[in-house]
Design a protein around this nucleic acid. Structure first.
Length: 511
RNA sequence: GCGGACGUAGCUCAGUUGGUUAGAGCGCUGGAUUGUGGCUUCAGAGGUCGGUGGUUCAAAUCCACCCGUUCGUACCA
């Protein structure tokens, strides 16, 4: 190894933490555009914004009390001066419950509210999955009836369409935790194992979309399922009779039944009701779903938009009633052109116990969350975003560097800005003029303004149409000729600058 | 977490059975061009070969572990 290399000072490596990403101008504009459209829908439904901070005391967030061994499992946690544990929020629902409980005396129920913000999860990131991402939530707090859940489903559907996702390209799938509980009661899932079998069954049912009936049956049974890398997932340990009953209740034994099939979801519900009645299980959950179905159908939302599907599970933690999720039905491809299984881009449900933890009194609530970052990835690949790209500014170049000239350039820029035109003066080292042109080219500036002393003496400026210039330049071969030709450039009276720029921008826009 | 693949310049990649000073294209900087993007041409900068340890006379190349990326799976409030 050469001495030269050894002596070289070690440079600090610039890197961002795993799962955290910088956002480009295009991403920020696309996100803003989406947020605006979502907000419009929520406002129209009569929801008001509220904001809570990124940090909460850990015990207020729920189950993730950091134990001393792994204080950061799942959530990012830090200890405050007074040794209290604080965590970055991992969703917007738990903080809302805290906000409502803390202000329960001032808040008029039912409280209809929305908010968007960054949430954080300390887990393995993947493509389209980050450790910091944005959610946009809407909730109705203090609403016990299923009509509130029905409204949430309709609002989700409206939001999808407001974002430019066509009817038929998405579906809101609806289920009820009470239905799942009844199914499990009817097959007598073990209750003395700390809920382990119950959770395993729920997880298995949730996989219907991914692995189909065969995979779910494997996961419900004792053998479990082997994936293509040879990894084995333990089964829930149900016997064949139990599995048969579940399959009967969900209707999955019928050909082309279940999610995304052509069968009527009304039949799915009727089948569920019949099967659960026969087994002597509660049909309260099915009745609720039937009520929701009646409401949304009456409001004109058919099953191409809102669909009842017993394989929807959602979170295992706090949902108590109806649950729903928004799913994209079209193929999404990534940058490499590969198909990506996109699945759910948002979801929610009824959480009647979340506020009660603080207040002791029943405060039933329902709400949903849209994964903005995730949905944006899909929309971007679909070409539904960033189509009206922001036009780069008009560039006023710097020929002369004396204060008087600089003032004159700045005046031009301000005149353009005053007329609502994006404009800037070249702020790099103005020594090399061709560098200014290269800058304008790379930025995509539509027009360049040039005024040297020749023009100034005659109260003129040069206007250069960068788009037309590029077109004309293609025919020129020698550099001398190219420079002499000054393609796309013409002289105007300095007094007409704003009008001429406006005129040229209009011409470019219509081309 | 488990299993597989991958990691060489800013980017895309080449680098033979282990063998001298690790290369190309694009991009970047500067010149040809003291008032014009593109083309052309000349020159230049840029590398802990992901990291650490090992085998060897010799490692980008072989081995082990770690880190990162990625695919599947698990978990997902």
């Amino acid at each position: 190894m050469a001495d030269k290399k050894k002596k070289k000072p070690q440079k600090l490596k610039a890197r961002s933490p795993r799962g955290f990403v910088d956002r480009s101008a295009a991403d920020i504009r696309a996100t803003d555009e989406m947020i605006g459209k979502i907000r419009e829908v929520y406002e129209r439904y009569g929801f008001d914004p509220v904001e809570t901070p990124a940090f909460e005391y850990t015990d207020c967030l729920g189950k993730f009390l950091p134990d001393t061994d792994r204080p950061n499992a799942g959530v990012f946690s830090v200890q405050d001066d007074d040794e209290q544990w604080m965590s970055l929020r991992y969703d917007l629902t738990a903080p809302l419950a805290r906000h409502v409980a803390e202000n329960i005396n001032e808040i008029t129920l039912p409280y209809r509210t929305y908010r968007n913000g960054w949430v954080f999860r300390n887990e393995k990131p993947g493509p389209g999955r980050f450790r910091q991402f944005m959610q946009f939530d809407a909730d109705t707090v203090g609403a016990p009836g299923v009509q509130a859940d029905a409204e949430m489903c309709m609002m989700m559907a409206d939001t999808m369409e407001a974002l430019g996702i066509k009817r038929g390209d998405y579906v809101i799938r609806v289920n009820n935790r009470k239905v799942l509980d009844a199914i499990m009661a009817s097959v007598q899932v073990a209750e003395d194992d700390g809920g382990e079998q119950r959770l395993a069954v729920l997880r298995a049912l949730d996989k219907f979309d991914k692995f189909g009936l065969e995979g779910v049956v494997q996961l419900l049974g004792t053998k479990g399922r082997m994936d293509e890398s040879g990894d084995h997932t333990k089964g829930a340990g149900l016997n064949d009779a139990q599995i048969m009953r579940i399959v009967n209740a969900t209707g999955w034994n019928e050909v082309s039944s279940g999610s995304n099939s052509g069968v009527s979801d009304g039949l799915t519900l009727a089948n569920l009701e019949k099967a659960l009645s026969l087994d002597g299980a509660s049909i309260e959950g099915v009745k609720e779903l039937e009520a929701i179905r009646g409401i949304v159908r009456a409001a004109g939302y058919e099953q191409d938009r809102i669909w009842f599907d017993p394989s929807v599970v959602r979170g295992l933690e706090y949902y108590t009633g109806p649950v729903y999720e928004a799913e994209l039905l079209f193929d999404v491809t990534n940058e490499k052109g590969e198909k990506v299984q996109f699945g759910s881009v948002g979801g929610g449900g009824r959480y009647d116990g979340l506020v009660k933890r603080f207040t002791g009194q029943d405060v039933p609530a329902t709400g949903f969350s849209i994964g903005v970052s995730r949905l944006m990835t899909a929309l971007k690949n679909l070409g539904k975003l960033g189509q009206d790209e922001v036009l780069a500014p008009v560039l006023v170049t710097v020929m002369d560097k004396d204060t008087e000239s600089l003032g004159a350039y700045q005046k031009m820029v301000q005149d353009l800005r005053g007329a609502g035109i994006r404009a800037e003066m070249y702020q790099g080292n103005p020594k090399d003029f061709s560098k200014q042109m290269r800058y304008a080219d790379k930025r995509g500036c539509p027009i360049v303004i040039i005024q040297g002393n020749e023009e100034r003496e005659n109260s003129k400026v040069q206007l250069k149409d960068m788009i037309e210039g590029k077109r004309q330049a293609a025919a020129i071969e020698s550099n001398e000729e190219y420079r002499a030709a000054r393609p796309g450039q013409f002289e105007i009276d300095a007094a007409d600058l704003v009008d001429e720029v406006k005129k040229l921008l209009a011409v470019q826009a219509s081309a």
